[in-house]
């Protein structure tokens, strides 16, 4: 289509530029038509080849530089965790604090063997899922260093509410040495620190297959988990049905425990979430009233502007021009 129209344009241009040719063309039409068809072939070919060149270079460029790049294979990325409808992540829902209590029980009885929770003090538990006395009793189970006494010796004292949770290992090196070189991450902020958050941790905890699929390479000392980037994870499956006994009678299935501990870890990462959401909806309520007010004020103030009518009265045609009435550039 493009080729044809451009040809037509070229032909008409030629006929305009040389009007003398037309008389020749009328005289010997046969020779004229052959040279014209040759020219048509030439420009057709030019057009086709340049189009091919353009398309080819663009596609070559896309092939070289335009495709999405993947630094890692899908196995190295890890499976994407399925998204679950978490109740506590809804905008108008708090944490389920009995689930927090269960989740902390799971953390204490299972996770805390390897994973620390060092950014949480015992006082945070009070009023969230523990009474003061329970939290105090829990704190007193661990021993902390005192300040140096008169002789410069550091003694041990039972923990207080203001103390932070103790790590299971003295330091990261001790943790690595005890876990085959793999460092169990601190869980205080883990739901914020991993892509997928709650979904990822839930999928990781419940996603261990009975045995690795055929063809999967699992290094010695590692376990196969498709959700873990690289699929080889130092942590073995930790949650089994009936591993803990909940005091409120909830049946401790693997997924129930995983759900509870994930909610607890989310609380550990965002203990302010309940207050944040409550304040947030108050702010939204007040702001929407203020927004409605400001809309009304705007309409009120602008009503003069919006309802006025501009009329142009042309001057009478033979009016005397006043000095200053003429618009000069």
């Amino acid at each position: 289509m493009l080729a044809r129209s451009s040809l037509r344009a070229a032909r008409s241009a030629r006929s305009i530029s040389s009007p003398t040719v037309t008389s020749d063309a009328q005289r010997n039409a046969s020779s004229q038509s052959s040279s014209e068809s040759a020219a048509a072939w030439k420009s057709n070919g030019l057009l086709a080849s340049s189009t091919l060149l353009a398309v080819g270079s663009v596609s070559w460029y896309y092939y070289q530089f335009g495709r999405p790049t993947q630094a890692m294979t899908p196995a190295e990325e890890g499976l994407h965790a399925p998204v679950h409808p978490w109740e506590h992540t809804k905008l108008y829902k708090t944490f389920d604090h009995s689930a927090l209590r269960r989740g902390f029980q799971v953390y204490r009885e299972v996770c805390s063997a390897c994973h620390s929770l060092q950014r949480l003090p015992y006082r945070k538990f009070v009023g969230s899922f523990m009474t003061v006395d329970e939290a105090k009793a829990l704190a007193e189970e661990s021993e902390y260093d005192t300040d140096p006494n008169d002789e410069g010796e550091v003694e041990k004292r039972p923990g207080k509410l203001s103390d932070y949770m103790l790590a299971p290992y003295k330091n990261d090196e001790a943790a690595r040495a005890a876990n085959n070189g793999a460092l169990p991450p601190d869980l205080s902020l883990i739901t914020k620190a991993r892509h997928g958050g709650c979904d990822y941790i839930f999928a990781l905890l419940t996603g261990y297959p009975e045995e690795p699929p055929a063809g999967a390479v699992v290094q010695s000392g590692l376990n196969f988990n498709p959700y873990f980037p690289g699929t080889g994870i130092g942590m073995a499956r930790a949650l089994y049905d009936g591993l803990v006994e909940y005091e409120d009678g909830t049946s401790a299935t693997t997924s129930q425990m995983a759900k509870d501990v994930v909610e607890f870890l989310n609380w550990a990462a965002e203990p302010e979430m309940d207050d944040r959401k409550r304040m947030g909806w108050k702010v939204m309520a007040v702001t929407s009233v203020l927004f409605g007010l400001s809309v009304w004020v705007k309409r009120y103030k602008w009503s003069n502007v919006k309802t006025r009518r501009l009329a142009y009265q042309p001057p009478p045609p033979n009016a005397q021009k006043q000095p200053g009435s003429v618009f000069r550039r």
Binding site: Y92, T94, H97, S98, T131, D248, R278, W281
Partner: peptide, 20 residues
């Protein structure tokens, strides 16, 4: 606003379950 919030989240907050 707090009473509406507590109504929406009935049974979920610590003050609802701490009696036990």
């Amino acid at each position: 606003a707090d009473s509406v919030w507590d109504q929406i989240n009935k049974g979920r907050q610590w003050k609802d379950i701490k009696q036990r």
